[in-house]
Design a protein around this nucleic acid. Structure first.
Lengths: 186, 186
DNA sequence: TCCTTCATGTAACCGGTTACATGATTGT
DNA sequence: ACAATCATGTAACCGGTTACATGAAGGA
């Protein structure tokens, strides 16, 4: 149930409508926590119902401007300091890795090579993004914090590339019991 | 819908009952793809219904032994080579980081310190696990692949520690516009 | 006998996704 | 007049979680 905190967080320094928030999600925040439109509107109503946010004004076409209440702010602040209980890890790529024995060495290496490329592309995309952002002039909330998140992303992608290269070497140096084709290759 | 592949993967080299698979999940695989008991039994029935796996024998107390069919194996093999379409990233910790502006510098540093500790603990847990596993004698499927996944985990946790330390330094060197208390601290 | 483990299943609920529905306002 | 954008909402569906229900078999 982290969406509620994401929504509240986006309302910390400036209020806005659901429509506004949608765009703030795409821009920057979407990289760490995505939300769909339908999900967002539902959450806004729920948060308003129990007093975490409130409608401060109504605009042109049914537009409702939401602002964070003191209650909401307090709750958000409390959550910020908490270390989250670990939920089940799920990594689809590693799941594939687990069953590499079904592939030939060549196929496995190819797959890992592609993974390294994907990581490199994602790294490049982050660099692009970071260059397109004005880290100083932007809203207070995103100024420093954005850089921390960005750095995490950069390091993660770098690590993935290095890991993939390491894995390729590891596979290469495994003296092949099966020279080719793991199992019935159809 | 990766659970189906996880299930099929576990049936590659040895068949087993739902109960068996549950234990295989906990042991090793659970670290990259978790599954609950109720989910598993449902998936087994579905996979059997459309011919990806089949009941090869029925044992003592309603026990059904499942084995992978050729169709299932072919499908799994195909999936193994594919690069997954990226689904929305979600990282709760980074979501918190995004709103650090609401915390005082001290609180933020404390939070990051705790994060570094969590990463260190998880790293240690992985080391323990890797020492408890006999990497050679184990089933073929998990022999090399398990090491690759393990290495990924180790590198990830190391990266997280280093990042947290970096972030703490970064925050420290930010000349404080707000010496203490981000906002109304209640 | 009785407890533990083996073994499979169902039901309620929750968060999230996709797609659809609706309509007001603004700018060209 | 018309298209684009602003703006909010509903419904169907899906994967996953938690909890409950049921009972057979094996070992002390």
């Amino acid at each position: 149930m982290s969406l509620r905190y994401a929504v509240m967080g986006l309302l910390v320094d400036r209020s806005g409508s659901g429509y506004d928030l949608m765009q703030r999600f795409d821009r920057s925040l979407g990289n760490v926590w995505a939300a769909s439109q339908s999900q967002l509107y539902g959450e806004l109503n729920r948060l308003a119902d129990n007093g975490r946010i409130e409608v401060t004004s109504e605009g042109p076409r049914g537009r409702k401007e939401y602002a964070l209440t003191d209650l909401g702010r307090a709750e958000l602040q409390e959550w910020l300091s908490s270390t989250e209980g670990k939920k089940p890890r799920r990594n689809e790529m590693l799941l594939q890795v687990f069953f590499f024995a079904l592939l030939s060495r060549e196929q496995a290496v190819e797959r890992l090579q592609r993974q390294a490329e994907v990581a490199a592309e994602e790294h490049a995309a982050l660099v692009d993004l970071s260059e397109s952002v004005d880290w100083n002039a932007d809203s207070d909330v995103l100024a420093v914090s954005g850089q921390l998140a960005m750095e995490y992303g950069l390091r993660l992608r770098t690590m993935e590339q290095e890991w993939a290269q390491w894995a390729i070497r590891k596979i290469a140096e495994t003296n092949g019991t099966n020279g080719e084709g793991g199992a019935g290759s159809r």
